[in-house]
Amino acid sequence: MKTIEERSNPYFANTHAKDVTGGSSKGEKRIPGELGIWFFIFGDMLMFAALFGVFLHDRSSNLLIFNLSQENLHGFYGFVNTLILLSSSICVVLAIRAMRHEMRANASFLILMAIGCGLSFACIKCFEYSEKISSGILLTTNLFWTYYYVITGVHLFHLLIGLGVLSFCYMQARQGRLSVERLRLVEGGACFWHMVDLLWIVIFPLLYLVR
Score class of each variant (00 low, 15 high):
Gly53Leu: 07
Val54Asp: 11
Phe55Gln: 10
His57Asn: 08
Asp58Ile: 04
Ser60Arg: 14
Asn62Met: 04
Leu63Val: 13
Leu63Phe: 03
Phe66Ala: 05
Asn67Ile: 12
Asn67Phe: 13
Ser69Asn: 06
Ser69Asp: 06
Gln70Ile: 03
Asn72Lys: 13
Leu73Ala: 14
Leu73Cys: 14
Gly75Lys: 03
Tyr77Trp: 12
Tyr77Val: 09
Gly78Leu: 01
Phe79Asp: 00
Val80Ser: 09
Ile84Trp: 04
Leu85Tyr: 00
Leu86Thr: 01
Ser88Asp: 01
Cys91Leu: 06
Val93Ser: 09
Val93Cys: 07
Ala95Arg: 03
Ala95Asp: 01
Ile96Ser: 08
Ile96Thr: 11
Met99Leu: 12
Arg100Asp: 02
Arg104Ile: 06
Arg104Cys: 10
Ala105His: 11
Asn106Lys: 14
Phe109Gln: 12
Leu110Ile: 06
Cys117Glu: 00
Gly118Ile: 04
Leu119Val: 04
Phe121Gly: 02
Ile124Gly: 02
Cys126Gln: 08
Cys126Asp: 00
Cys126Tyr: 05
Phe127Thr: 15
Glu128Asn: 14
Glu128Ser: 13
Tyr129Pro: 01
Glu131Leu: 15
Ile133Gln: 08
Gly136Pro: 03
Gly136Ser: 13
Asn142Tyr: 04
Asn142Thr: 12
Phe144Ser: 03
Thr146Ser: 14
Tyr147Ala: 13
Tyr149Ile: 13
His155Trp: 13
His155Gln: 09
Leu156Val: 06
Leu156Lys: 02
Phe157Glu: 03
His158Asn: 11
Leu160Asn: 02
Gly162Arg: 03
Leu163Ile: 12
Leu166Glu: 02
Phe168His: 14
Gln172Val: 01
Arg174His: 09
Gln175Ile: 03
Gln175Ser: 15
Gly176Leu: 10
Arg177Gln: 10
Leu178Val: 10
Ser179Cys: 08
Trp193Gly: 02
Trp193Met: 07
His194Arg: 09
His194Glu: 02
